[in-house]
Design a protein around this nucleic acid. Structure first.
Length: 424
DNA sequence: TCTGGGGTCCTAGGACCC
DNA sequence: TCTGGGGTCCTAGGACCC
């Protein structure tokens, strides 16, 4: 059996650990740039506000309905996530982190006899040691465990074990709520008269294949109790690394575009070095703010402009990247345009220190900058992001106009000495 | 009218996840 | 006026190889 432990409205629960005044209130955590609601407390959901609702549409209800909004504090959530995993590992040898708030656990054989009690034990321990409420679900496959977890969250004890015959459970569940079925497939499935998870499980493979490809065939197999989920480890090296942001306000200057792209490049480079990866190239893009942007997907797609740069040699050195990326950012800027967003995507990643593919026609430089960047990364980790930056990222003394909005940020109470809780 | 068989690599687009 | 960010996998089609 596989168990899934999943933090309830994780970001909100993290905020509540250090701010008890939030308990019982309708609280939402906002996306970057204070854009829209990404995590909501049960009290907030009860008001019927859907996930993804823009903050500006709800702002006025802070006063009238007592809604509380918080900017996302990833440093806090990441640290509490790590602590939850640690607690799980004290009970289960085999813990597989799936996302910031979820982990699959493979219970020891002695626990199989009474998974309900075991699930309650896990949940209580996480709650007492870290303060995060979780739901727990057990089932033979990951897809079924996801369903069991959703049911568990609605139970008073937070735990659900999938019965040996899950048929009645699946008959009660719309197909669109199955893990791996997104928002596009349900319409296509309905055309094949597949409405519930049970219909999905019992549909013939050739129909499933034509509707949703091999991925949907696998999902159905999982519902039948056949494991065929092959996902990568949470901490595995990524295939690509990116960094992008919507601007706090539209950018209209070349310097603004160049500085922001330089800054995203530097951040992504730090991420690469953390994984000890080199990038062989990068895609630089900007998005133009156009009126009526949110009325059609086509408008959004056509508003992106980008170019690909291939580095002379695979690299993790910020200065080498900036040398290649900056001219591209300059070239992408068109006078008179208002820009909404910019970003970089690094691809062609390879492990640093592994055999390198050399270029026959250009001089290959040794990776001499690695010590310099190890020192810079260490300083920035210790004294905060932006302590030491490249000049092309802009002067730190001037608040850049493209900076993110984060007006309701809570403190980093578990990772930063200066932001600890104080006892009076 | 009629033109093999077996591959690789790359890219773009679509779908999904949290 | 104001709507996030960071990923993955699969497929089809094109270009190329012998």
């Amino acid at each position: 059996m596989i168990g899934l432990v999943d933090g309830n409205n994780f970001y909100v629960s993290c905020e509540r650990v250090f701010n008890r005044k939030l308990l019982g209130k309708p609280v939402a955590v906002l996306s970057n740039n204070d854009g829209c609601c990404v995590a909501m407390s049960p009290e907030f959901k009860a008001l019927g506000i859907p996930r993804g609702t823009p903050y500006f549409q709800l702002k006025h209800r802070e006063k009238t309905d007592g809604l509380v909004f918080l900017s996302s504090n990833y440093e806090l959530y990441g640290d509490l996530s790590r602590r939850v995993q640690e607690v799980l590992r004290t009970e289960v040898v085999d813990v597989e982190q799936y996302s910031i708030d979820e982990a699959f656990v493979y219970p020891p054989s002695w626990a199989e006899k009474d998974l309900l009690s075991f699930g309650r034990r896990l949940r209580q321990k996480v709650y007492r040691w870290v303060g995060i409420p979780c739901g727990v679900g057990f089932a033979p496959t990951k897809t079924l465990a996801k369903i069991a977890n959703h049911i568990g969250k609605k139970r008073p004890d937070g735990v659900f074990v999938m019965p040996e015959d899950p048929t009645p459970v699946l008959a009660d569940l719309p197909a669109g709520e199955v893990w791996g079925v997104g928002r596009r497939l349900p319409a296509k499935l309905r055309a094949e008269r597949i409405h519930t998870a049970l219909d999905l499980r019992d549909a013939p493979d050739d129909v499933l294949r034509s509707v949703g490809g091999v991925t949907l065939v696998r999902t159905a197999a999982e519902l039948r109790g056949v494991s065929c989920n092959q996902d990568r480890a949470y901490d595995a090296d990524p295939d690509s690394v990116s960094c992008s942001r919507c601007f706090g306000e539209p950018v209209t200057t070349r310097a603004g575009i160049v500085e922001s792209v330089a800054s995203f490049t530097a951040q992504a480079a730090t991420k690469l070095r953390k994984h000890r990866l080199l990038a062989s190239g990068c895609n630089v893009y900007v998005q133009v703010a156009s009126p009526g942007m949110f009325e059609s997907w086509n408008d959004i797609d056509s508003s992106f402009v980008g170019r690909t740069v291939v580095f002379p040699n695979p690299t993790d050195a910020t200065n080498e990247m900036l040398e290649a990326v900056t001219p591209v950012a300059e070239a992408l800027f068109v006078e008179g345009c208002r820009y909404r967003k910019a970003g970089v995507v690094f691809f062609g990643l390879e492990k640093a220190g592994s055999a390198r593919q050399l270029d026959l026609f250009t001089e290959t430089k040794p990776l001499e900058s690695s010590k310099l960047y190890a020192a810079i990364d260490a300083l920035n980790a210790r004294y905060g992001k932006g302590t030491l930056v490249s000049a092309s990222q802009g002067l730190a003394t001037v608040e850049p106009s493209w900076k993110m909005r984060r007006e309701h940020l809570s403190r980093r109470a578990s990772t930063n000495w200066s932001e600890l809780m104080t006892v009076r």
